[in-house]
Each structure stands twice: as structure tokens, then as C-alpha cells.
Simulated scan of single mutants.
Amino acid sequence: MATYYEEITPKLLKFIERQNMFFVATAPAGDGRVNVSPKGYVDTFKALDAHTFAYLELFGSGIETKAHLRENPRITIMFCSFDRESNIVRLYGTGRYVRPDDPEFRDFAPHFNLEHPGLRGLVVVDVESTQSSCGYAVPYMELKGERPVLDTMHGRRAPEEWAQRVAEVNDKSIDGLPGLEPDHPLPTEVPRTYA
């Protein structure tokens, strides 16, 4: 049976800190595709307090989450355990995309590893409620390690390839919603440390 809370409780926080991945679900305001994305790299996400969750947005194959949040900020984050502790945790709230050149980015930067070469921005979730449920049907799976392919691929990209991703690949969602702005910073322009 599901249990609902008004915040990320200490128990839920401990569970989140033990996870290696999570899923993000967003949808446009009207017609359009609902998007669910798996996210990995344990140094890219964190519950910052009882009502705030954030994660680094790395360049990928699309721009659905950012495009959706612009017109419909509703977002769900889901963690599920694949080991002996059967549990599913959902964070419900509103999200916003923070560009690397936004002053707010500097406030969040110390919580994350900014060395990922495909750094695109940050998603901040204002958590309104949470849910814990059994997860009894989630299969047991064993983690072999993080997949380094995304970082490796991004580390090989030249500045002109990044510019093309901003201008042509991530400029709109699959439903035609606006994605990255033409002046969005390229990953090669993002500071990796903030004094």
C-alpha cells in the first residue's frame, strides 16, 4: 500500500541516497507526448532538503524535459530499488530548468560533479509531496557499474558539434515545443568550478 508525505522525509532521503538512477516524467500542457527519461551517474542528482531535489541535465538525444517544463512545470521523479529492499519512491512537484549562465546555477553547483563533459543545465524540483510504495513486482537486478559511454562520447565532441546540437538537435522537442535558445552556453563554455 502507498504512503503519502508532504516532504522528503529522512527515511526517504536515505533511500534516495542509496540509488544509482532515477526516472523523470513530464508532459506538455496540451496534446503531445508524455516523456519518461532514465537518469544515471550518481554524482548528478541530490535531494537538497525536504522540499528540493535537483539534477544535472546532460546533453542527450532530446530536449523533452526542458521543453515541457517551460509550458507545464509539473514533474514526477521516481526511484525504484532493484535489490532486496523492495521500494518505490516518487517525488511530485514543479520543476524549472536552470541554464549554466543563470546566477542561480552558481548556488547549486557545489552539490554536483560539474566535470561531466556534456553539461547542459540543471533541473530543480520544488517537491510538493512524496509517495513510498512496495515495489514488489520490480525485478532483482545487480549493478555492474555506471555506463561511461555518454561522458566518453561527449568528451570527443568538438565545439562546432556542440553548436549544432544547440541550434539543430536540441532546439525543439519531438512535438515542436521550443527547446534550447540559440544563445544557450555550449558545454565547453561552462565553468567547472565556482569560487
Rank of each mutant, 00 (worst) to 15 (best):
Phe22Asn: 02
Leu150Ile: 15
Leu150Lys: 12
Gly30Arg: 08
Glu17Arg: 14
Tyr92Asp: 04
Ala67Phe: 01
Lys144Trp: 13
Leu177Pro: 00
Gly60Asp: 03
Asp107Phe: 05
Lys11Tyr: 12
Cys134Met: 12
Glu71Ser: 10
Asp171Pro: 04
Gly121Ile: 06
Arg84Gln: 15
Glu168Lys: 13
Ser133His: 06
Asp183Leu: 06
Arg192His: 05
Pro73Phe: 00
Arg147Thr: 13
Pro159Val: 08
Met153Ile: 15
Leu69Gln: 01
Val138Gly: 10
Ser133Trp: 11
Ala109Gly: 04
Glu161Cys: 07
Gly93Trp: 03
Thr188Pro: 03
Arg192Asn: 05
Val127Glu: 02
Glu168Leu: 11
Gly145Ser: 04
Gln164His: 14
Pro139Ala: 12
Gly95Trp: 01
Ala158Val: 13
Asp107Trp: 01
Asp151Ala: 15
Val124Cys: 03
Gly62Met: 07
Ala158Arg: 14
Glu181Trp: 10
Phe23Thr: 06
Met78Lys: 06
Glu71Asn: 09
Phe82Tyr: 15
Trp162Ser: 01
Ile63Cys: 03
Cys134Arg: 13
Tyr4Pro: 02
Gly121Phe: 08
Asp171Lys: 14
Val24Gly: 00
Asn20Trp: 13
Leu122Met: 05
Thr26Glu: 06
Arg18Leu: 12
Lys66Tyr: 12
Asp107Asn: 12
Pro139Leu: 12
Cys80Ala: 10
Gly176Arg: 02
Ser81Thr: 08
Tyr41Met: 04
Leu69Lys: 01
Trp162Cys: 03
Gln164Gly: 10
Met78Thr: 13
Gly60Glu: 05
His68Lys: 02
Thr152Glu: 15
